[in-house]
């Protein structure tokens, strides 16, 4: 079956340098640096990445950061709570626009 996404492609991520090495190198350096222990722990960063992966709905990222958070000792509850954070922000972003709708409604209503 042909699909747009192939799990095997995740392992080939590094190959993007074949077409543009300089920018790929800069990206992977930056990426590696970003996820190092810092003011935030690598574990916290991994949970943020998992939440963001669900926001951008990238199957590769979901796969990668499910494994990464598990390796970093997060459990299923913590991982699902991270997804809920993403979901809450997404739904909140829709709902907060309800104020705009209400403003317009009130503007047009007697």
């Amino acid at each position: 079956m042909k699909t747009y996404y192939n799990p095997e492609d995740l392992k080939k991520f590094g190959n993007i340098g074949e077409f543009q090495k300089k920018l790929a190198d800069k990206f992977f350096d930056y990426y590696g640096e970003t996820f190092k222990e810092g003011a935030l722990t690598a574990r916290e960063k991994s949970l943020i990445a998992l939440a963001v992966a669900h926001t951008i709905q990238c199957p590769y990222c979901i796969d990668a950061y499910t494994v990464d958070t598990m390796e970093k000792g997060c459990d299923e509850q913590q991982m699902m709570e991270a997804v809920h954070v993403a979901a809450a922000i997404r739904s909140g972003a829709s709902l907060v626009h309800g104020v705009q709708m209400m403003n317009k409604y009130k503007e047009l209503s007697m």
Binding site: A42, K72, G73
Partner: peptide, 20 residues
């Protein structure tokens, strides 16, 4: 001793120790 409950590798030992 921490060993993963599944088909994944253990992460950084120090971070896991901190969490435990």
């Amino acid at each position: 001793v921490y060993n993963p409950s599944g088909a994944f590798l253990p992460g950084n030992q120090e971070s896991l120790e901190f969490e435990f």
